[in-house]
Design a protein around this nucleic acid. Structure first.
Length: 529
DNA sequence: TCTTGCACGTC
DNA sequence: CGACGTGCAAG
């Protein structure tokens, strides 16, 4: 880690993100800590060059600080950014090959948590996961040279608790644990999205796991956020400052002790975690290992997952979940294609129902996805799509249907993926709002592809993740937290989505997916199975 | 528990 | 400046 900067220092460029943003680099630069990269495993044979890809979590030390306490991320109706921001350094990409980088956030387990007595504990079963949404990095697709040049920042990604979020933000449930994942999808022309050989790899940094909350529960987390997030500077300061500030707010002349301060102190008295940690993540140490294993590991069998460890992380049954499909949305405006109809959305409502498929994959589709030709005119994806049902709605929804959650464990494959069940069959539950991804996307062919990819990609997680055997929490060893997953290719079938027409739902936003034609591709990963 | 408006900060 | 990101406290 300490790279001190290696490349990065510089690398971090300001905006890797989007264009619009100014840059954010600032803070980060200094510390770029990277983690050990995760290495992918191969699952299948061909990795098409994906095997040499390494991903380093930026500012890992900061993530670790939060992780040791039990990271909490605020979720609001309007959408809230994550802090620490998720930024990575990627190496091993073919400079000339184009890749799509995207993230998704999957359930860390299927429990609902509560924070009491200064610690997290399980209170019950998790609510059905919402439709998984994908956050496609605004620069996607871009060449390996581009991605490698600087830090890749997902800082603009926002989290929301609004199940009907129209902005394309990632939807999470409060008091539930989640694990962010990074997916790198090869977007070469030869590899159309739909193509069976779309190669991708997934990377998971266990230290980025967090519990979504509506308001901070652990004061230590509040403190860390205030101390490290520039936007919270107003809450920093010596006690005196705080006192004054508070007093001012309260209209009092004399200093008042800020609550936060009080609380913190009080609380802190106790050890932070003590047992609690386990609640969340388990205590750091404990957690990790197990955690990693479980999660990280690849698991082929679901069972494994289940069994695992006590750590929280392990997830119970995978099955349940599975259904979600992620929705992708691109973050930026950049590219959206308009054509596409809107995205897919999925109602996620369905409770687990579908889920249980055994392992995940189930659903998927088979697909048809031909690799699209790059042709514009037709969308590659579309091609498929169109045909059958183009009609839209129905199908789309189908896609949505997902609901269940994917869990880390499951990551394995299918779950997420977008499985879209059969379209028709499924009923759409609700019309979800489509979210649009970002603004318009360019309609370039690429864009569409991406979307496609996106769909696919997310799902896969499950399996392949590997993780490092050893992660220690602290920094010692090499890989710490990151686990990777490996690459695999999408094999076949992606499903298509029907495209949906805008009309349907009221608002429509385009999402990448949409554009893409909504297909949901589900790749079948080669699952180990 | 979650939502809202705020003061204060960054960009 | 204005837009937007923060945690806070009140609701």
């Amino acid at each position: 880690m300490a790279n001190g900067g290696d490349q990065f220092g510089l690398a971090e460029r300001p905006d890797s993100d989007c264009m619009d943003s100014p840059k954010e680099t600032k803070q980060e630069n200094p510390s770029l800590t990277l983690n050990s990269p995760s290495s992918p495993q191969t699952a299948s044979g061909q990795q098409q060059g994906m095997e040499g890809i390494k991903v380093f979590l930026h500012d890992r030390e900061l993530w670790t600080k939060f992780d040791e306490v039990g990271t909490e991320m605020i979720i609001t109706k309007a959408g809230r950014r994550m802090f620490p921001s998720y930024k990575v350094k990627v190496t091993g990409l073919n400079p000339k090959t184009k890749y799509i980088l995207l993230m998704d956030i999957v359930p860390g387990d299927d429990h609902r948590y509560k924070f009491a007595d200064n610690k997290w504990s399980i209170t019950g079963k998790a609510e059905p996961a919402m439709p998984g949404r994908l956050y496609v990095h605004p620069d996607s697709p871009a060449t390996g040279a581009h991605w490698s040049r600087q830090l890749v920042s997902f800082q603009k990604l926002k989290l929301t608790n609004n199940h009907l979020d129209p902005f394309g933000h990632i939807i999470l449930n409060s008091m539930h644990k989640y694990q962010p994942r990074l997916h790198i999808v090869k977007a070469d022309e030869n590899n159309g999205f739909g193509s069976k050989n779309t190669a991708f790899c997934t990377h998971v940094f266990s230290e980025t796991a967090f519990i979504a909350v509506t308001s901070y529960q652990n004061h230590k987390i509040t403190q860390l956020k205030i101390e490290n997030n520039p936007f919270a500077k107003g809450f920093r300061g010596s006690d005196d400052n705080e006192l004054h500030r508070m007093a001012k707010l309260q209209g009092k002349d004399y200093p008042v002790v800020p609550r936060s301060t009080v609380r913190q102190r009080a609380c802190s008295s106790g050890s932070p975690f003590s047992g609690e940690s386990r609640g969340l993540r388990g205590s750091p140490e404990a957690v990790r290992s197990p955690y990693s294993c479980e999660n990280g590991l690849t698991r082929n069998s679901p069972q494994e997952l289940l069994s695992p460890p006590s750590s929280h992380y392990s997830l119970p049954h995978p099955h349940l979940q599975r259904g979600q499909q992620p929705q992708v949305y691109h973050c930026n405006k950049r590219k959206v294609e308009e054509n596409c109809s809107s995205g897919n959305q999925h109602p996620y409502k369905k409770p687990f129902a579908g889920s249980s498929p055994s392992e995940g994959e189930s659903y998927y589709h088979p697909s048809s996805y031909p690799p699209p030709p790059s042709g514009l005119s037709t969308n590659p994806a579309l091609g498929l799509t169109d045909s059958p049902y183009s009609s839209d709605l129905g199908q789309r929804q189908a896609c949505m249907f997902a609901s269940s959650e994917p869990r880390m464990d499951e990551l394995s494959c299918a779950s997420w993926s977008y499985t879209c069940p059969l379209p028709a069959a499924m009923t759409p539950m609700e019309p979800y709002p489509p979210y649009t991804p970002h603004p318009p996307y360019s309609s370039s062919p690429q864009g569409s592809r991406l979307s496609a990819i996106a769909h696919q990609s997310s799902p896969p997680l499950g399996e392949h993740i590997t993780h490092d055997p050893y992660q220690t929490q602290s920094s010692g060893p090499p890989s710490q937290s990151s686990q990777n997953i490996h690459s695999r290719q999408l094999s076949s079938p992606l499903r298509e989505y029907p495209r949906y027409t805008p009309n349907l739902s009221p608002p429509l936003y385009h999402t990448l997916e949409t554009h893409t034609h909504i297909r949901c591709g589900v790749p079948e990963w080669s699952a180990a199975s």
